[in-house]
Nucleic acid binder design. Structure first.
Lengths: 235, 235
DNA sequence: TCGTCGATTTGAACATGTTCAAATCGTAGC
DNA sequence: GCTACGATTTGAACATGTTCAAATCGACGA
């Protein structure tokens, strides 16, 4: 019933070969001909498994998100409070991509191109966004927050984590320590800010800001991501 | 003393021809061969004036920034208060790029690529960033603010304006009304936030946040952009 | 075993950004 | 007017992502 190498297996093989090359030489510096040759395939065959070079990056990021969800949940189990859960949420993501800065460049490349499948806000990447926001939503878990904020905070945390990833792309410090440090400072500050939200003087303008963001469609409906990630992950 | 067509003239001609094509068909969809032909030059000659296709976009953005500074100052002259100055700062930028969404895509493309000349945070684009932050700095003008905040707020406004531009890329509403509306809501909210900064309860965590951003090199020295824009603009 | 049909593989061909050695042009100095 | 030299122009050639028609493979029914 099983071929020794199914289509999925070969695809995975090409995928891993390509990632290794991307990590080693960078995305731009790796040609599809090299990917094909290193995979033991002809150029055309490589294109049979991935529609395009960026499509490989797309698969990579899908993998990153699923892995993030997995590791985050694992970490959440041991975390004792919100601070620790946020640490898990941020650092597990950074752990996963730590060695892939040369690759992530490609992911950010088409972020602003609304017509591109890898666009940050396009329909094709919505699933990944939702998965990602879901992680931060779970980090908040049953935190007591007014409902409107409760649905918006995960989006803010997601935005922060996007910013952190961007920062990491430029972080040349060993092990990207700078990025880790920034994350470690951002987390307690976010918590303080959250507490400040209870002060009416602060809450009023924040409410207005949220209303504006909501109206601008920058805050997606929470229901969408909350359902996600429950229905089994990979193969 | 002047050739009828100096190198600069020809360069400007190629530039304008290219922009027209980019606007009409989009950046990706326009080939350098088309640019060359439409300019009445051979392919190689076009490359004599611009090192690369993106280099044209680089020149465009330089132009945008200078024009922004010009229009903003013009507008500041008539503005009666901070709110109006911020409106000028934001809307003049949006005015300039309003018809160029298909072109701006290329500008955002290499934002995250730290090795690319058009990178958002790379050394090659520092001048443009400084010019841009300078505009927001001038908008604040002599606003009374604690020194540390006074140097950071222009950076925050700059970041907001980057976000607005990104939003505009995805804004399909006629005339990009959505983006305008978002800007108009963001401005008074920013002002309210600024006032909140006087409340110690708020100011303390904000101070910490600024310290973190400063340490992360995300807030450049204010002196750099304040000097700028005083020494004459274009030709 | 043979024929058939879909899955897979192949490599040539194409489009397009970029490079470059050679040709051409224009002018300054004689 | 002529020459030399730098500025400009040219188009062929190259690299690389992508496409595609044709070849090959492999399993299944007859």
């Amino acid at each position: 019933m099983f071929k020794s190498t199914s289509k999925d297996d070969t695809r995975a093989h090409v995928f891993n070969t390509a990632l290794a090359l991307f990590r080693e030489k960078g995305f731009n510096e790796t040609t599809m001909r090299e990917v094909a040759k290193a995979s033991g395939l002809s150029l055309g065959a490589a294109y049979y498994y991935f529609r395009s070079k960026e499509d490989i990056v797309g698969a990579y990021y899908e993998h990153v998100q699923i892995e993030h969800l997995r590791r985050a949940r694992e970490g959440f189990a041991d975390a004792r409070n919100l601070k620790q859960r946020l640490e898990v949420a941020f650092h597990s993501k950074l752990d996963i991509i730590a060695d892939d800065r040369r690759l992530l460049v490609a992911l950010f490349r088409y972020g602003g191109d609304s017509e591109h499948p890898l666009s940050w806000f396009g329909p094709d990447t919505q699933r990944q966004r939702d998965l990602s926001m879901g992680v931060f939503d779970e980090a908040l878990s049953d935190e007591k927050l007014p409902a409107d904020l409760r649905d918006a905070v995960p989006v803010m945390l997601w935005a922060m984590h996007m910013g952190l990833m961007l920062y990491m792309l430029f972080d040349e410090s060993p092990q990207q320590q700078q990025t880790r440090k920034l994350a470690d400072q951002a987390i307690p500050l976010s918590l303080q800010m959250t507490k400040l939200l209870r002060v009416p003087l602060v809450r009023t303008p924040i409410r207005k800001a949220l209303a504006a963001l909501l109206e601008a469609d920058l805050i997606p409906p929470a229901a969408r991501w909350r359902a996600l990630g429950t229905e089994g992950g990979e193969a």
